[in-house]
Structures are given as structure tokens and as C-alpha cells.
Design a protein around this nucleic acid. Sequence first.
DNA 1: GATGAATGAGAATTCATTCAT
DNA 2: AATGAATGAATTCTCATTCAT
Lengths: 208, 208, 208, 208
Amino acid sequence: MTEKAARPGVPRRTRADAQRNVEALLKAARTVFDTSGVNAPAKEITDLAGVGVGTLYRHFPLRSDLVKAVVESGIDACAAAGPQLSAVHEPGEALAEWLRQYTEFLGTKRGLAPALHSGDPAYEALPGHFLEKLGPVLTQLLDAAAAAGEVRDDVSTHDLLYAIANLCMPVPGQGPEYNQRMVALLIDGLRAPRQGGSSDSSSTDDGR
Amino acid sequence: MTEKAARPGVPRRTRADAQRNVEALLKAARTVFDTSGVNAPAKEITDLAGVGVGTLYRHFPLRSDLVKAVVESGIDACAAAGPQLSAVHEPGEALAEWLRQYTEFLGTKRGLAPALHSGDPAYEALPGHFLEKLGPVLTQLLDAAAAAGEVRDDVSTHDLLYAIANLCMPVPGQGPEYNQRMVALLIDGLRAPRQGGSSDSSSTDDGR
Amino acid sequence: MTEKAARPGVPRRTRADAQRNVEALLKAARTVFDTSGVNAPAKEITDLAGVGVGTLYRHFPLRSDLVKAVVESGIDACAAAGPQLSAVHEPGEALAEWLRQYTEFLGTKRGLAPALHSGDPAYEALPGHFLEKLGPVLTQLLDAAAAAGEVRDDVSTHDLLYAIANLCMPVPGQGPEYNQRMVALLIDGLRAPRQGGSSDSSSTDDGR
Amino acid sequence: MTEKAARPGVPRRTRADAQRNVEALLKAARTVFDTSGVNAPAKEITDLAGVGVGTLYRHFPLRSDLVKAVVESGIDACAAAGPQLSAVHEPGEALAEWLRQYTEFLGTKRGLAPALHSGDPAYEALPGHFLEKLGPVLTQLLDAAAAAGEVRDDVSTHDLLYAIANLCMPVPGQGPEYNQRMVALLIDGLRAPRQGGSSDSSSTDDGR
DNA sequence: GATGAATGAGAATTCATTCAT
DNA sequence: AATGAATGAATTCTCATTCAT
């Protein structure tokens, strides 16, 4: 029990290898997810990472653990951008810009989208992680912009986070710039005075 | 339905059963796809349809055949709505209304979305079917609205068809009305004068 | 639904094959269990039976289903012997003889013993099956013998069924006749006037 | 314990730790064997012992080494009891009492029984260890009792050692006292005048 | 044409064992 | 000596697909 301390010269270093493996796995997973989807055989990932399957299972016992780790990588940077943008832009523009960055961030994780929509209960928790980290950031931006009258106030943080995530799904024959373009369209809709539809559609129950 | 009569010399008596089976399979597939995704075990579908697996394979040798059939069911009605709407609405509103109907149509096929984004090459052809049938219809509406200056002219049929398909992906905790709401936002963006960003953002390369 | 009836000439015969497979599996399982224990790889059994693994899983989804089936095969014959013996023997001898036959029956299932004692919860239900079928039979014999004063009355059906099952566990270097011999010893103990220990042992807590 | 002193020239300092580990492993193994069987994952044992897997393998390279060590722990005390009992009891009672103590000893190792009956060749040697240590002791007692006419003379040491080991297998819903009771029954049979079966069973080939 | 039993390839997962630290 | 990360063989189980009836 006290032996570890009793051997000061052995700082339990092997961790470096383990860390390297975890990173290799993460990197490989990102690649493979993009290539073959989140349900790609574990072997494909470990082969790419150059480790044995056992190593994958040691660090990520559940497939969803790996997915989660991939999802979460980079999310902090995205969250951090919010306050910074608020500081240097008008509320509306800060919001728009953050959404563009968010879109870009999602472009990084294209292969994950199917997992989020797979319906597999194992991934049910994933969106929560997004919300938890990014929700508060976006809420801040959204509220500020709404308060300044620069965007409509009937769209929630949650609405937006998911709508954009949806718009970021890869589309055959199109790259990330397509998604940026569509998101821009949505943002325009957000900033435009609410239209809802002309004359007769105003009576339509459009689910709002 | 009229096929029996179409082959006078062939007393193909069971044709009615086969037809009934195909329909049962289609119905079951729609349900199961929604519930368990497009890769649900074949057994799940055949059990629900009340037929043997063999019957499924006879009519839909490839899984993608079944998916394709499900995708295509109802698409004609959606396509037909275009001209009708053009006839009774202003171009912009006709477009908006058609997109709403398209959204509703997609709501019918929620379970299919993952297939479209699965990356599985077997489903690569699916989007083509959409485009083929619905593309011309939407193009007509879009061009008319753009010509009338009611919508921006830098968004293509293809762009829109996919963007809305993306926005129609199911979101946890939300029903179809959520998707309608987000689509409405996109439509607003489409009808709004192009903004691209406020003053300073005009210089920003916002990916468009 | 009514189609089956509509084709009287097709009596759904394939069952013969299935039945043959089930029997082949049961036979193979009995052999393999004896050879390699109840936890032998499924492949070993299916190879011996000459069927694919899938067939094993179709008929016996759980390993314990197979074990149970093996356990139960032959149990009815054993149960049936009870009344017959009662009819032609004195109570004490009927009991003894039945226990001998029970021992012989267990010899048939030597490989199963470890399963019963594996502690694996999957097999927890197995003893129940024994009890259910054989318990009543033995109870009858035991009560009759006790009533006739030919055996002690402080040993229950349950006690005996398990004790003998235990005594029937294979012993290295010994065949079934060893087990018969030990069971005979137990039976002698059962028929002997209760001793509990001589004079001084009467004060011993002998666990009874 | 006294080993340090036993090797004067070798300043083997860590010996104490090693010893402690071995003991911890033995204790843990006993527990785990009882709980999860002899084939429990090594990790389960090392976790309980609070050591790394490597340590387990250092001291017990083969699983059977560990099992053997567990089996043997306590066996000496059991062996030693024989002569003591002979000294203070009549031959028959000495034997009976020793068998009771042996039963109690086995109760300590309940989890091991499946190993002995697993058929796994790795454990084939185990029974030999029993025999080697306890055989001579029991032989002495048995011979004395037989010579005194207090027990039948057609049951061997080997027979008894195994029969009782079998009777000591855990039975669902029963504790060690059940096993004591069944062993007592066997002992009664041993002490009873040989019966073999009444009149008519004498003609039965009852496997003896 | 319909059925469902059989097949067997494929994927997940576990765990004994090795070995670098 | 101790540790625990890494490995990968072994095994289970599932399911798409075929095929005899």
C-alpha cells in the first residue's frame, strides 16, 4: 500500500504508452467513423490505431464510450468561443459567427451524425453532452441577440443546436461548405422578421 | 392490380396474394424502419407482415430494394402537388407551401434518414430517386419564385431538397412539428433579402 | 392466414428434418457434455451433430436450454418406474431398488453434474426439474417404506435426491459401479436403525 | 515466516511482502472460488487480494497451482486429527468422528468441488494430493475399525474419501449441515451389518 | 409462390498470459 | 518483486441469405 511511495524512483511511468494508445484510438476512430460509420467493426479501428482489440476495450468498454470521447474532443474549444465573440461583436453578429464556428466544429465530426440519429439507445446520452456544454454558451448569445431585437425570440437554444446539427449531416456530393451555406440560410431566417407565411398561411398551425 | 387481366394467357392465380404480401411488407417495413432503423433484422419485418422471410427476399432481394420501395411510396403524390400549388398561389407562397408538404411527406419516412446518411453504398442511389422525381417539381417552383423576386436566387433545388431532408431528421424529444418549425425558419431565410451578415461580416468569408 | 388450410396437399413436412437435427444435437450434446463438460464450445457439439451453429441456437437459444433438454431426456422413464416397483416389492426393497435405478439413470448423465454444481445461475432451475418429476415418485416410496418401519423417517425426498445425485458424480479412475456401491452404502444407512454414534457420540452434535 | 533467517547470505528484503501477497491471494482465491467458481477471472481474485495480476502469475503460474494451494491449505491439520482421535476413541467412533471432521474440512472448500469434477485435466492431479495426505490417515482408522468388527470391511479408503467429497458438494438451498447429515447416513451404512438388499435383491446385479 | 429451417460468415467481447516499466 | 497495460486467441451469438419442401 505504501510501497509506491517507498519507491520514489519508479514514478509509475507506463502511463505514457497508455495515453499514446488512447490518442491513437481516438484518432483512428474519428477516421473510421467518417469512413465506415460509427458501427464499423472494432477491428477496423484498432488495426488503424495499431493496437490490439483488447486495448480498445480496456479504454472504451462500450462502443458509446468511444463515440462519446470522439464527440467531446474539441467541444471545449467551441464552447470557449462564445464569450470571446460576444466581446467583440454586436449580439446578432456574435451569434451568427458562433453558429458558423459551431457548424465548422460539426464538420469535424461528420461521421458521428448517423450515431446521433441511429435511434440506438446507447447513444441517447450523447446529445445531452452537447447541450450541457454548448447550451449555456448559445443561450447567452441567443438571449443577447434577441434582447437587441436582432433575432426573433421564438427559437430556443435547443432548437438551434439540433437544427444546425441536422443541417450539418453530410450530403452526397457536397462538402462542408454546403452545410455552411445551408446554415447561413437558417441564420438568415433567424434574423429576418418573422414571416411565417403570407396572408393565408398565417392561419396555418405551423407548429410554433 | 390490373395485371391479372394484362396476361390473359397465363392463369397466374396467386398474383393477388403476392400483391397483398408486397403491401404488407411495405407497411411493416415502414413501421419497423421507424422503430428499429433500416438495418432492423429482416425477421422483425416479416413477422410484422405475417409472412416468411423467403417472401421478403423474393420481392426485395436486396435490403436496399425494400428501402427504395419505402422511400418511393408516396413520392408521386408529393410530386403532383407542385403544379397544383402553382396554380392557386403566388410563386413564393406556392414554393413555401410545397416545402411544407414536402416536410410533411418526409415526416412519414423518419426512419429512413439514417439510411440516407449511413454512408452505406447500398443506399447511395436513394437520393437520386428523390431528385429525379421531386427535382423537376421543385425547380419549377423555385424558378418561378426567384423570377418573381420572392426568394433569393442562389439556392438550388438540390440544395433545398437535401437541406430540408436533413432538417427532417428526428430529434430526441421532438416530434414532426419541430422539424416543420425549423424548415419554416429556413424558408424564411430563403425569402428574406440576402443578409450574409451585418456590415462588417460582409467582408467575412462566410463559406458562401 | 387461411392459406395453409387452402393447400391440404402440403402438410408442412420439413419438420422431419428439424426433428432429426434436434435429436442429433441432443445426442451430440450428451456425448460432448460427458467428454468436455457442459461448457464445451458450441462448435464442438454442432460439429459432432453435423449441423451448423445456427441450428443449435435456433433450437436451444440458451446453453441452459440444451442442458435442460439433456437432463430431461429419460427422466420420465425413471419416474414411471416408481409405481411399478411399489407393486411388486416390499416397501423397503421397492425404495432401494428405485434408488438403484435412479443411480443408473444419473450414470447416463454424468457430464451434467458439474453444471448442477457450477453455481451458474443459468442452471439454477435444473434441480427444480428433477424435483418436480421425481420428487413425488420418491416421496411415495419413501413414505411407504417409513410407514412400514423399514427405513428411518428423518430423511426427506429432497435430501435423498440430491445426496444420491452428489454420490453419482464421476470419480477419477472409477466407473458407474463405484457410484452404485456408494449409493448402496447410503441406502444401508437409510435402512439401518438410526445410530447417530455410539454411547458417547450421543452427546456429539452430529449435525442432525 | 522463518525463511528470512533460513537464507543468511541472501539479503532478500522483500520476502515479507511476497509472503503477504501469497497469503492475500490464497485468501482471496478461497473466497472467489466459493463465489464464482474455480474458473473465475484472475482479475477478480487479484482485485480482492489487492495485488496486480502479474503478482498472481508470479506465485501461481498455472491456475491449477492456485487451486492446489487452496486445496492443500488446512489439509495437514485434518491429517493430524487422525492419530489423536484413535488415542481417545473406540476404533469405530474414532473413524466416524474423523469423517465428521473431514466433512467439516471439506465444507471449507466448497467452491473447489466443481474443479474436482470439471474433467479439466489440469485438475486431475488434485485428488492425488488428498489421497497422499489423508489416505494413510484414513486407512489407519478404517483398518482399526474393521479389525474391531465395527465397520464392514469392503469399503476402501479411496472409496470413502471420494464418496464423502462428493457428498460434500453444495446443494442448492442447503448449508454444510445438510452435507454433515448425509455423511452421517453414509457412516451409518458403513457401520451397519452389510445388507446389500433383502432376499430377492440378492439375485439382482446391483453393480457391486 | 410461400415458408421457415439451416447455414456459416462476421462481429463483439472476454480473459489468460506476457512483458515493459 | 510488483504492477497493470497490451495482446489476441477463443468463444458466443446474430442475422442475411439460401434452399428444400
